[in-house]
Design a binder for these strands. Sequence first.
DNA 1: GATAATAGCGGACTGTAGTCCGTTTGTCAA
DNA 2: TTGACAAACGGACTACAGTCCGCTATTATC
Lengths: 212, 212
Amino acid sequence: MSATIDLGTIEPGGERTERRDAAANRALILETAETLFNERGVENVCMADIAQAAGVGKGTLYRRFANKAELALALMDTQMREFQEAMLSRMRQQSEQGLSKLEQLDQFLDALIYFVDRHNPLLCVVQNEGLLESVGEQERQRPHFWQHMTVSGLLNAAIDEGELPPDLDTIYVADALLATLNASLFRFQREGRHFSLERISAGLRRLAAGLK
Amino acid sequence: MSATIDLGTIEPGGERTERRDAAANRALILETAETLFNERGVENVCMADIAQAAGVGKGTLYRRFANKAELALALMDTQMREFQEAMLSRMRQQSEQGLSKLEQLDQFLDALIYFVDRHNPLLCVVQNEGLLESVGEQERQRPHFWQHMTVSGLLNAAIDEGELPPDLDTIYVADALLATLNASLFRFQREGRHFSLERISAGLRRLAAGLK
DNA sequence: GATAATAGCGGACTGTAGTCCGTTTGTCAA
DNA sequence: TTGACAAACGGACTACAGTCCGCTATTATC
């Protein structure tokens, strides 16, 4: 009766447990992709290459990952969760220490900048496929979604604390602040404009500071 | 000796004048593309369709427009120039009337929002191909480039007028404000979040207002 | 007008994304 | 075990982007 529901990598209820060979292939594909990406750079590896290097058919590859963006997202998954949890625990701690919500926002944005920088190539791939598609598609937006929750949450909390005026459009502002960290723009700022991380961080925090 | 250099659609010096058949084809392709885009929607038309409908070979099509983004850009070209000139003349006029630089910035951003909304489908195509490529590629960035010039120019002018603090990183801020108008994000805000143009405009201007 | 030089043309060709479907394999119940 | 059945597999196939190159048309010159 009660099937042992294994949560796998995706938590929403109702997921069936993955067959053993499928799980093995998923791991194999991820390893292979990571290796190839490191060897040749993300943009110089195509899906067929990955399938061949992993010794599986293209059908198998696409059954697991609908495209390169999903694959890239899966590769970042662990580090994203770690980052996410680190931020949450840090913010909890900071709240206890009485740090203001706006200062917490500052630090969150700063940390996010370093994260975006480190993972820029993968993020470029992820975002290329991103928001564009049918609006309902939430899977690939997961990173943005979480980031948006965090930023708008901090903004709302700041309003509650009287640090920001209550009429602020926090949903919009969160969008705007995060738009700044779009991977392609970020790359252009880093490589084309030769901005340092410090400059980007200072600029963004300045923008946030203007809200009060 | 002195060849009559026809400026064509692109002005940088050293351009040869286009052969008559080539010019005819360019016009034919643009017309055809516009029709197809209107009939089926930009994203449901591929380059081969356009070539076929125009009755030219793919080679011919690609000789004129390296990809759909360039084609889309060319289709917006006229309206973009008009918008650009309208803005410039309006700003000149506003300066004479003593309107502050920050108010001019507000109005520019507001107008830009309506422009981005009207041309969203084409802009999505243009930006998809955009910034990503080799950083040097300036042709396709033309819209961004011009917008960035305008915004950072206004910010610098505002500093000169004492409306903004002189230590403001105007280059960065211009990037940040414009990042907000990224076509994909914009579309998401409009269709996914159901934001009105007024809401977006108010939010963005609020952000700009915080700079002082 | 004839001719040479060259820009322009067309469509076959290559490479990649992503789908489809007949075959194989793992899992669960008897 | 074994058999049934769903899940997973592989690779041929379709669709689209973009390139290449031999042929054609235009234009400048005489």
